[in-house]
Design a protein around this nucleic acid. Sequence first.
DNA 1: GGTGTGATCGTA
DNA 2: ACGATCACACCA
Length: 207
Amino acid sequence: MESTRLAHRKIRPLPRSFFTRPTAEVARDLIGCRLWHVSPTQGLLGGKIVETEAYLGTSDPASHAHRGPTPRAAIMSGPVGIAYVYLSYGVHECFNVVAHDGSEAGAVLIRAIEPLEGLSSTDLRLCAGPGKLTRALGIHRNHNGSDLLKGPLYLERGPNPTSLQRSPRIGISKAQESLLRFFEAQSPAVSATRVGSPMLRGRRVPK
DNA sequence: GGTGTGATCGTA
DNA sequence: ACGATCACACCA
């Protein structure tokens, strides 16, 4: 089968040095790269990255690393090229890669991919959103801490994006001045219009 | 098109 | 008590 042949292709992971740079640069350069999961049960699953966000260190109020190296966020100030997977809203797993220049903490959230291998190319919407792509690829918080140079999750360089754009990040209530979201404007997988629920803007209604 | 809300749980 | 979310209801 097609996917079987591709599963034996040699994946060449991005080198450690790719992630040893300012987090926003890494977020920008990850657009167009491939995210692979060599799944023990599903085989090779992967897609082209079309949307990312950079989260920085203590200077970034929206970052988990904002309050220093808490048990959860400590991974963001550790070695780069490591997966940081956390549970959001008690429901969704979100996949990040640790990336910083060594002087501070940082990670890049992958927000959308276009299906390439092992995924239905007709169901673009299943990969459009940080909680949805992890479900599609079988990424779980068990993968937290795994090395993206050793697998089973990998990042690999792809063709350069055709139309790279940047914008404020989505779904956060602070630090809206920064343009730390990167996306390929042509891609139908990018979440274009929906920019967060009122719940996230502090308008929660008491019961 | 836009706006409002519930589900659900680890973290601080 | 919150969310780096999503789906669906409702109103226009």
